[in-house]
């Protein structure tokens, strides 16, 4: 998978982020360097509060870095670049819109016609098993279904980059496994660039081409691990020795960083 590193899609150069607070400035990120290739699936893995969500927000152009720079497709990011889809930990569906209208919201925000994208929205929802629920409201659906709808919304305008901020963190384990497989399929089909924030080691290794392990605050990328497991990766891949070796390596890294206190 070394050929992936040819075209950089996202380049982060020495990005730092400092928040002002009542108790003095807080360093959320400390000179992070990271390059994400076109079509690559990168997982940002780290403990809570290590600044991985902040890093994602810098890429999305939602916040400017305090130092360093972020480039998307070669251009410096000052405001949200075009062609990005984002999935948050909470689904952020609007209560007053049906599931279909919630998905089409992305088109409305981007100033594109609903009619043009209505078929695609239905097809997406269908693919995610929500075909029967297009006219329902968010509160009538389960958490997993709601997050599926949120993913459909992020995919509607065919983004080349998908940014996901712990998208499955609030879901139960079974739904989580299911959505992991679904996400792997999306990546496989569209060869989209995906940056995926998570604090689950298993999830990161299962999904990503490369795992960027971050240290607790101030957040830094301490190690990048290329996950060389063949795709597609079924759930059973988690039982293979190769998978276990990656997980063990990262867990050992976390123990060294003092994130996991080793009590084996």
């Amino acid at each position: 998978m070394t050929d992936l590193a040819v075209t950089p899609c996202i380049t982060i150069e020495g990005a730092s982020k400092i928040y002002g607070s009542a108790g003095g400035p807080i360093r959320a990120l400390d000179s992070v360097d990271l390059v994400v290739a076109d079509g690559e699936f990168v997982a940002l893995l780290g403990p809570s509060g290590c600044g991985k969500s902040t890093l994602l927000r810098l890429i999305a152009g939602l916040e400017p870095p305090s130092g360093g720079a972020v480039f998307v497709r070669g251009a410096p990011v000052c405001e949200p670049p075009a062609g990005i889809g984002m999935v948050f930990q909470r689904d952020v569906l609007l209560d007053w819109r049906t599931i279909l209208d919630n998905v089409l919201l992305a088109a409305e925000f981007e100033g594109r016609s609903r009619r043009e994208l209505a078929d695609r929205a239905r097809a997406l929802l269908d693919r995610f098993g929500l075909g029967r629920f297009v006219d329902r409201h968010p509160w009538e659906l389960s958490g997993g279904m709601r997050q599926r709808a949120a993913i459909c919304r992020a995919l509607l305008c065919e983004p080349s980059i998908l940014l996901m901020d712990e998208p499955f963190g609030a879901l139960d384990a079974l739904t989580r496994d299911d959505l992991n497989l679904e996400l792997a399929r999306i990546h496989q089909e569209g060869r989209r660039t995906i940056v995926f924030v998570t604090h689950s080691i298993g999830e990161a290794v299962h999904l990503a081409d490369r795992v960027a392990v971050m240290s607790p605050s101030p957040g830094r990328v301490v190690e990048e691990i290329v996950v060389d497991l063949p795709r597609p990766r079924p759930l059973a891949v988690r039982e293979t020795p190769a998978f276990a070796a990656y997980v063990a390596h990262i867990r050992e890294l976390f123990t060294r960083l003092g994130i996991v206190r080793g009590q084996v």
Partner: peptide, 28 residues
């Protein structure tokens, strides 16, 4: 919801669209 505003920004929504599609229904 701040995330709804972030979502609007990611999709480069106009202030008018944010007012009309997010803020106003939210205020109903």
């Amino acid at each position: 919801d701040p995330d709804a505003l972030a979502l609007a920004r990611v999709h480069r929504a106009s202030p008018w669209a944010v007012l009309w599609k997010v803020r106003f229904p939210n205020a109903l």
